[in-house]
């Protein structure tokens, strides 16, 4: 009976340690663009797309190049491995996940905030039907 508890305890302890280590290793910190530029770890940067700056897709390398600005107004050039994400134009916020290398943020993934769940701030407008979608921004 005692042996059972000891074995059980060791197994549980091993799982806890294994889980904790995996958790620490795979935890992707949210950092500012400035911090992202200084670290070699995989990080996430939250911000928004700089619509006025150059954005293009390079079909030969299947990379999408754009600039994002974080909450501290730091501009970060981003190269996403892949095409322009769905919802990119309308996402009020984006989250780029990747590493800073060679002067650009090499993103493996860019999350766009799915706007379906965003609520209108002003509600419907009186004028036209078009107003409904305008109240979004």
């Amino acid at each position: 009976m005692k042996a059972k508890y000891i074995i059980g305890g060791v197994v549980i302890a091993a799982f806890v340690v294994f889980g904790a280590i995996s958790f620490m290793q795979n935890n992707i910190a949210y950092v500012s663009a400035k911090v992202a530029e200084q670290t070699h770890r995989t990080v996430q940067v939250k911000g928004s797309w700089v619509k006025t700056m150059k954005t293009f897709y390079d079909p030969t390398t299947n990379t999408f190049h754009f600039y994002m600005v974080d909450d501290h107004h730091t501009i970060l050039p981003v190269v996403l491995a892949g095409a322009k994400p769905n919802n990119f134009e309308i996402a009020p916020n984006i989250v780029a996940k990747g590493r800073y290398e060679d002067g650009v943020f090499q993103a493996t993934n860019v999350l766009t905030k799915c706007p379906s769940k965003y609520q209108s701030k002003t509600g419907p407008e009186a004028s036209t039907q078009q107003s409904a979608s305008k109240s979004y921004n």
Binding site: F18, G19, S22, Q25, N26, N27, Y30
Partner: peptide
């Protein structure tokens, strides 16, 4: 707050 990479789920 920060999220976790999908590799965590696969690894564990």
């Amino acid at each position: 707050p920060s999220a976790i990479a999908n590799s965590y789920y696969i690894k564990t």
